[in-house]
Nucleic acid binder design. Structure first.
Lengths: 190, 190
DNA sequence: TGTACATCAGTGAACGCGCGTTCACTGATGTAC
DNA sequence: TGTACATCAGTGAACGCGCGTTCACTGATGTAC
């Protein structure tokens, strides 16, 4: 009956979602056309609508995928606050700043997500909650709820700092902003 | 010789810059077409190139104008830290969140500015420096330089918090994020 | 004061192009016999 | 084992539309005489 293996189409779909994530973070959502997104995945534009009902549909799935993946990376870190500090130094590194396509979706797309359709904002809301939960669990393993506010502060400061560093044309200032961001975040967590 | 008063064309140009600022902050830079921008200013698309060499040119001027205007609003606040606290409560209000067109350019456009041409990033860099200077001067009137890092922290946290609140589809959580953002910023400044 | 006219801000149609989306089709797949 | 064929993932041309930009033009302005 099924002439192709069940996994084949699903794998293609997942590949589109992942390459689109990279492209969106690099060129913006509005800045990435469907034909380009499909070419990135090694396909042509026509196949797009066999996988997604619309570009908006893809955007919502990409946002969900990006944030889920990011939340999962927390499990690879050292336990507790030490892991958080490692995450922070990596997050606010020139390497991360200079490669948005491979980096954090929030830093690359947050204001654009604010202008997206409801489905995308739903996906973002769920994903962001999971990430802030991960942070809170590391700040106060015994009572994560109590650290939720502080986790939000760390999250927003990190995202804002990376965005600012990317928007500056003065490389020296851009580097200082990252370093100062690490100091500020560590001070804030104390 | 000059058949129209000197001020007339300059006033029109300034009007385009201001209405474009509102439109960009509401719909994004990529999301705002030249024809729409000119209609917002009560003109037709053709007149655009009598005022600006390209859309990129306009974008850079709008960014410069937006940040200059924002820096100027600091002078209307009560002196010292009290003014900063008033600013913060206004900045992280549902009113500001729900009217991006009338609000902060950084919160509405920061990640898109990071993808813009050099001229726009230059304009942003100059403008952001002035705003952070204003904040630092209020934190440490006698030695603003020492407070520059802390001013950056306040700035990035405020921008990140407003962006996050705008991207959330859950109104209750979005409100909590704003309130928590105020608390976190005040804690951070202490 | 009245009229002719040079100026130039603004008009609106048109350019080629890429957008999101549709659709008739191709051709590799792997099952049926 | 070999062949016929139903399936369906993917192709690529085409749709109308809005994009940024250009340009021949209009018509209000206010100076010159």
């Amino acid at each position: 009956m099924a002439r192709y293996s069940k996994e084949h189409k699903e794998a293609t779909r997942q590949r589109i979602i992942e390459t689109a994530g990279h492209r969106f973070k690099q060129d913006g959502i509005d800045g990435s056309g469907v034909a380009t997104l499909m070419a990135d995945a090694g396909l042509t534009n026509g196949a797009f609508y066999a996988h997604f009902t619309s570009k908006d549909d893809l955007v919502a799935r990409v946002v969900a995928d990006q944030l889920r993946t990011q939340a999962e990376t927390f499990s690879t870190l050292p336990p507790g606050r030490a892991g958080l500090e490692e995450f922070l130094r990596d997050y606010l590194s020139p390497q991360h700043r200079d490669h948005p396509g491979a980096g954090c979706a929030s830093a690359a797309l947050l204001d654009e997500i604010g202008r997206c359709a409801t489905a995308t904002k739903h996906a973002y809301t769920d994903g962001a909650r999971a990430i802030v939960d991960e942070i809170a669990a590391r700040l106060a393993p015994d009572d994560p709820q109590s650290a939720y506010g502080k986790a939000l502060g760390l999250f927003t400061m990190a995202v804002g700092t990376l965005q600012l560093s990317r928007a500056l044309s003065d490389p020296k200032l851009a580097d200082e902003v990252l370093e100062q961001g690490i100091q500020n975040a560590l001070t804030f967590l104390r």
